[in-house]
Design a protein around this nucleic acid. Structure first.
Lengths: 339, 339
DNA sequence: AACCTTAACTAAACCGATTTAGTTAAATGT
DNA sequence: ACATTTAACTAAATCGGTTTAGTTAAGGTT
């Protein structure tokens, strides 16, 4: 069973490559290829299991039916879940997805964008490190279809889909405040990323609303790469310091789970002594000890919105302007704050 | 800043496309292009940020520097983690990865294989549904580079990387038996997949070693798609039936977490009343209530082995025969079985 | 009978690279 | 002084499709 090409079909059926190509692309009628000819071409192709070479097709069409997905880390459950829905939706629309992790490295992200472009992807989906102004500007200038998600460039006019990070953190912080907790620590990442900055703001504003003075010693901004180490110091300081807290807000799921791990190690009872809440969650957060109150992100909606916008851009349906979508998070109350 | 092509460089520098191509591919010396010419080509390319069109390159070379990854579900933490290491290693070697989820659907898997092939991937990595003999045979016949992982076709002579599923389940079951548990249920998936069959075997043999008769009523084989529903029935029957068990072996991480969720709902104390163990884990298994004893899979090793074998195949370094790797799992004892 | 349509096709250019098979002019050998 | 080698290139074919710009023959007009 040798591989068959367009020209083989053409030769065997005594027609031109043009005819074969047109027919197999469903343009037989509009190009007045007779029914018999169409019939035999289609039959032959089916019988010999002809599949067009996408590289050739892509090269000549200038379109590859591929979209590029650039995320910080495919192993992170949040991104892998979003990737899942993006891939499914993309496939449903005839696109395959090329993915790469940037590992939060701006240069790497830049290279990935370039690499995806030279692979002729038709569009890009990026959860950016937010340090690639240059590449983003380039994409904009070239009017290349792309959508940012999770993190966007607030100062730039691009398509994006994010969640309301400010509101999410505010909700969990206020939940703690409503339950009477007053000394609330925050363990978050070093700022730099917009969502992280927003989460800090949400925390601060929640405290302000309850007329609680901000205590700088209660806020720990951790280096991502070092989070295992640094969080230990943070927890110790918060819990065993001179002015111990009675609640902690964690700004990501992995900070929360690692935090809980350490609280357990230190034999701090949660929620009796310290209540905890998390922005974003792991699927097991409802069965950990104690189940962790979190705000959860609408993963499915994120993925669907991203693909919708991107495909519209690619297929040029909606030319007009850019679209920014901010989705709401949902507070999931569990037992990590007492009841 | 218009996009520059090979021919632009050639024209602007008054040299041939051939020269430019050779030089930029590092074949300048072996083709005796003078140093000055090489110099100016390289400079020009750098200055104008020339990046070759991979579709064109792929088409003419018959190689795309892309590998295809077909897995059941990118959202599953096991696969997303393996995908992470595969992607990283692939990138290190100059390859990009195209991924698609089969959602355990054999036809879809077949289509994905075809789709990847016509996209001219240089190699395939497949965690197969094990129902695609035809496609696998086809790949073998064509001597197309591919590696199976997680699930392979034991009767076929292919490259693969799997873990010792039999031994893993045996280890967790024996762990329960060593702690004096005698009435051990098994909640697993409907057989069909080799790893699942092996896990059943491991369970059975562990019981046999301890001279415990197999009780068919203790084994529940669940339909994956319906697992949320069916596991509830299984748990109820095991725990509340006429002959209640004192331990449960779960054959996947999601069965284990859902199982624990239900046991909590029924107020069954774990491990006092029922001990549980899991094949494979979630990252939060050490902080759930109670922490779940599991056998864990060497994710990094799996990914590395897969890429190693595949790249060797693609680059034709080791022609001789096929390579099957069976990796050991590791028993992680936590509190879900008492101590 | 000359002219115009139209149905049914096709030749050849093109996409942007790689690569084979030369060519040319200078240097070297005898 | 002529043949041979070599350094330094290049023209053109090729990869496998898509697409533009025709061509040809039959049928319809006037």
């Amino acid at each position: 069973m040798k591989k068959v090409y367009l020209k083989d079909i053409a030769k065997d059926l005594n027609v031109s490559k043009t005819a074969v190509s047109l027919v197999l692309n469903g343009k037989g009628n509009e190009n007045k290829i007779s029914q018999e000819t169409q019939q035999k071409i289609i039959e032959y192709a089916k019988k010999h299991n002809y599949i067009p070479n996408q590289l050739a097709r892509g090269l000549s069409r200038g379109k590859s039916e591929t979209i590029g997905l650039i995320i910080p880390n495919i192993s992170d459950t949040f991104y892998s879940k979003v990737a899942g829905v993006i891939e499914r939706k993309a496939k449903e629309n005839g696109y395959t997805v090329l993915f790469s992790s940037s590992y939060e490295n701006p240069e790497k992200e830049g290279e990935l964008i370039q690499s995806m472009l030279n692979r002729q992807v038709d569009g890009l989906i990026i959860a950016s490190t937010q340090q690639n102004q240059k590449e983003i500007d380039f994409l904009k200038k070239e009017k290349f279809p792309f959508v940012l998600f999770d993190r966007h460039y607030p100062s730039k006019n691009t398509d994006y889909v994010v969640v309301d990070n400010y509101d999410g953190t505010r909700k969990i912080t206020e939940h703690l405040l409503n339950l009477g907790r007053k000394k609330i620590g925050l363990i978050t990442l070093k700022p730099g990323l917009e969502p992280i900055a927003q989460r800090l703001l949400g925390y601060k504003d929640a405290l302000a609303t309850f007329n609680i003075d901000l205590d700088k010693d209660y806020i720990f901004e951790i280096e991502r790469e070092e989070y295992i180490h640094e969080i230990e110091k943070a927890i110790q300081s918060l819990v065993l310091g001179k002015n111990p807290i009675d609640a902690i807000v964690f700004s990501t799921h992995y900070l929360a789970s690692q935090g809980l791990r350490l609280l357990k190690k230190l034999n701090i009872s949660v929620p009796e002594k310290v209540a905890i809440v998390s922005f974003d969650e792991l699927s097991a957060f409802d069965i950990v000890d104690p189940p962790i109150t979190s705000v959860i992100q609408p993963i499915n909606k994120i993925g669907c919105s991203v693909i919708d916008i991107l495909l519209n851009k690619i297929e040029g349906i909606s030319e007009q302007g850019t679209k920014g979508i901010v989705l709401e998070t949902k507070l999931e109350i569990r037992q990590s704050c007492g009841q």
